[in-house]
Nucleic acid binder design. Structure first.
Lengths: 231, 231
DNA sequence: CCGGGTCTGTGACCTAGTCACATTGGCGCC
DNA sequence: GGCGCCAATGTGACTAGGTCACAGACCCGG
């Protein structure tokens, strides 16, 4: 433990670092800086971490939970851009902030979230001092940008049935159940609810799924996967 | 001029730095590093700077010309993601490289291009040493990400007629002429050629444009602008 | 069991993308 | 000049996707 004035603070140790593979090899002095100046933030589910109106003042590393980054159009339609989960950083959002641009994406805590909040000054300091930290940050960037590229590709060139099948498979829990409404699925894909409803009806007609209010059970997930892998 | 071994090198001075507002306030030692280790690259129009197959080994700052970054789908459809012009950096592309990810976007020199190529080692060094350089890089990132967000928003939520009107206005030269084929316009928007042809016919029917082979003249640019600004 | 809100279903209609093929314009070449 | 080629453009028919309006169905608290 590093200099914490003698009182125990639970998570305020360096234990969380083990959650970040990219940070394993940081030299002790860097770890010390991180641990000393960062604090642990706990955000209840639904918290808007970033968006028109709010802005985080720190670089966030997620210890637990997931954050959804999405875009909302004037007409109220939504599309999910990507998710940040434990071990990832909110690099992109942070970078955009640093560019002082206002843009209309927003980040929402999809579950209760625990995150390391690295103050801007520390972030800057670490970027300067640690090649490993730099690599960590740039790698995170890279992943997010790749996500955005994929979103663009899918929205521009893929069919909704294929994309819907992908999401169903991807967001099903262990029991093969997807706990989302048609409206929420539509928001995932950036399409309209009616479109999702119709596609789901078609899937059900084929016996691939069974639907109930607010949830969908995957009956033949392999068929969905096959469609999802379609060219 | 900084240490250049006594021989003149034309562009290999620090003259180009004046093209990058974000770099104006760099301290002399940083400028020295930049000038000493970077070289000037000249790329003829059409050069594929980055893409499936090629990869740049350096961070690029554009002195002259423009670079188009686009995505190509399996089916052959294309969409332009953003353009990098003089004074900008190819930050995003570079970052993606550093993340060692393979993705399918490509960068093409849209005109003859002159750029400062900063080797990876120098880039890393400068990031470490110069807060201003960091700010420059992150700001560039931010702009590109904002571009991507806008592309997603437009592709997902905007009508093609509106987007086409935007492009026509945006890519018209001083004489109000757009030197692009319908196919090229379709590639800008990520749609199909027939769709563009039909929309152009509609614009022409309304007297807003007149078309000829390989070019479009804006007759009533204000009407196009009005449509482009539509909600 | 009743009333509200949320969620889902549906038909009609419009916009966008696909496919197949016809037509035209420009340009080099005999 | 006339010919032939190829890229660019035009068009119709059809499918997929998005919008609108509204009807039921389900759920939960009172």
């Amino acid at each position: 433990m590093y200099n914490e004035g003698g009182h125990t603070e639970g998570w305020h140790g360096d234990g969380w670092i083990s959650n970040f593979p990219g940070l394993h090899s940081l030299p002790p002095d860097i770890v010390a800086t991180l641990v000393e100046t960062s604090r642990i933030a706990r955000l209840p589910v639904g918290t808007r971490i970033f968006g028109p109106g709010q802005a985080p003042d720190a670089f966030l590393l997620l210890i637990r939970g997931t954050v959804r980054v999405q875009q909302v159009s004037e007409s109220g339609r939504e599309i999910v851009l990507y998710r940040v989960s434990a071990g990832d950083s909110c690099a992109l959002t942070t970078a955009c902030l640093m560019g002082y641009e206002d843009y209309q994406a927003e980040a929402v805590a999809e579950t209760d979230v625990e995150a390391v909040a690295i103050p801007r000054a520390t972030f800057d300091d670490l970027i300067a001092r640690s090649p490993d930290f730099r690599r960590f940050v740039f790698t995170a960037f890279s992943h997010r940008v790749t996500d955005l590229f994929r979103v663009i590709e899918e929205v521009a060139f893929s069919r909704v049935d294929v994309r819907l099948a992908q999401r169903l498979v991807e967001r099903a829990n262990d029991q093969g159940r997807v706990d989302l409404t048609h409206q929420q699925l539509a928001a995932e894909l950036g399409t309209a609810r009616e479109v999702v409803s119709r596609q789901l009806n078609e899937f059900q007609r084929r016996g691939w799924i069974s639907t109930s209010r607010g949830a969908i059970d995957l009956v033949q997930p392999n068929e969905l996967r096959r469609l999802a892998a379609a060219p």
